[in-house]
Amino acid sequence: MTAQLLSTRPLPTRREEDFRYADLTALAGVWPVAVETIAVAAGESGALSVVNVGDTPVVRELVITLAAGAKFALHVLNAGSAYGRIAVRAELGEGAEFTLGAAQLGGGGQVLELITNVSHAAPDAVSRQVVRSVVGGQATANYLGKVHVAPGANGTDGSQSVRAMLLDRTATANARPELEIHADDVKCAHGCAVGELDRNGLFYLQSRGLTPPEAKRLMLQAFIAEAFTGAADEAALQDAALKVLGDLL
């Protein structure tokens, strides 16, 4: 992985789509940010887990290039108590496979966001994105995700599964999964839902003896589990997420 400073780039404004819901004040404090580039050679595999559970603003920009037949799995736990922004651009070569599993958890007043731009540049590449956000208090969770299928990238298989859970009516979730398809023979699916914990389920669990926080934790644990399924460090990610959840409830 190499890092370079984009010091020439001015501080973004809200007019830029990718920064529409950003915490610009916090962003100004850390701007400019280093762009981290990851290149996976043809036929090779790579993986990265990004765990943000600290109390200072974290802004990361990742550019991941997958050559033909390459595979990369990115897992993100975006759950710091300050601004957390993870932006990912992935460029997929022929037959490449990109997986993103992310959970964003916050309950203060922080903004947590995940911005993805996945480009299917060549045929037969696969991208899977699973994003689960849980926000309470005044927190905001954003997912802005674009899947771009280039002309001629036939056989593309792309999916975005985006769900957010609001613990309080004062919390906010913004989700915008986007597909931009310029090829004919593609399979792309996206689903998006923002909801609250099922009250019937909560009462059911409580009626068996679980306290309200325990009942919520059990349901939320199940809700975010899918984000980390298949990660090499799945158990560690789950544990870290559960710890944050425990503090949230």
């Binding site: 099922d198 019937n200 389920g201 009462f203 059911y204 669990l205 009626s207 068996r208 003896g209 679980l210 306290t211 325990e214 059990l218 349901m219 644990q221 199940a222 809700f223 589990a225 899918e226």
Partner: peptide
């Protein structure tokens, strides 16, 4: 103990985990 007329489905949570936690909470 309240036996429900319409027991609720809780996706992603196994009976074993749920009941052990519930029993131990009690």
């Amino acid at each position: 103990f309240l036996g429900f007329q319409y027991p609720v489905e809780i996706p992603g949570v196994s009976f074993v985990q749920f009941l052990r936690e519930a029993a131990n909470a009690q």
